[in-house]
Design a protein around this nucleic acid. Structure first.
Lengths: 141, 141
DNA sequence: TCATTTTACTTCTGTTTTGAAAGTAATATT
DNA sequence: AATATTACTTTCAAAACAGAAGTAAAATGA
């Protein structure tokens, strides 16, 4: 997985990897919705194509956002879990959610409210990350 | 500028518009670097292609992130300025910067430090947005 | 046990997007 | 009046994407 970076800017470098329409949604699915298998990802609301899903998982793993493992009692399913690097995207995901809720509903009226998030951003981030860590630890036993 | 949204998720809807490698960099150039003309954008460190630049500016304008105007004494240059919707991306941009600085340097060693940002996030956001508003107001007279 | 289903992909094909270069038209400068 | 600058558009090859179909191993059901 070779990757050339366009500049020395941290924003540009982040977009060099996460700057597409799917990568951050996979992180969202893991962090917020607790998804962990290929099948679960493939059933997303946004209908990701299976080829794109495979390539994104590969890239996210190559760059250390996620890990891939098998559980002892299941030789078929792969379990994808966020690393600290991936979990650290929680504040970013919260900001995107808040911005999107505030400014995108005018374009997409279907967007829901997230009042809990607005009320206490820091608390929301902590709850999401703590919850994820707990659930992940439970999965790997 | 028609656009179909993939789902009711605010993250997905935001990515439907900003989920590419260039849009957020243009916002960055305006908000942080004070760029405002086509020429200035085209001279970015990341070497955006002129066709992509034109299409992104068009989309950002169509979705109300930026406005396009001419100054009374210059019939040639167009001045692009962020709207409130665009300025509101400051917290998101700060989060991306901080995340990128923390986690991307391992992949791209050229990335610089942003200690001021880390020290006080809220202050940094306020300074950037207040500065932008002031500079923009001065430009339009 | 053996057929069926499930999971996790890969492959194929047509379409869309991107990137690099060149071209154009109006305005501004020398 | 000639040249340069600005803001694009156009062109075209290459890369990325989307949807459908196919494959192989593992798990399940009869």
């Amino acid at each position: 997985m070779i990757k050339k970076f366009r500049s020395s800017c941290p924003i540009a470098s982040t977009l060099d990897i996460l700057g597409d329409k799917w990568s951050l949604l996979l992180i969202r699915d893991m962090l917020i919705k607790g998804k962990k298998t290929y099948k679960e990802f493939s059933l997303s609301d946004e209908k990701i194509a299976t080829g794109i899903l495979a390539s994104r998982l590969k890239q996210l793993e190559a760059f250390g956002f996620i890990t891939k493992r098998k559980l002892p009692d299941n030789k078929k399913e792969n379990i994808y879990l966020l690393t600290e690097k991936g979990i650290d995207l929680a504040p970013l995901i919260v900001e995107v959610t808040l911005w999107g809720e505030k400014h995108m509903r005018v374009h997409n009226p279907r967007i829901n409210s997230y009042d809990e998030l607005k009320a206490d951003k820091t608390l929301a981030i902590n709850m999401v990350t703590e919850n994820y860590r707990k659930v992940a630890a439970q999965i790997i036993g």
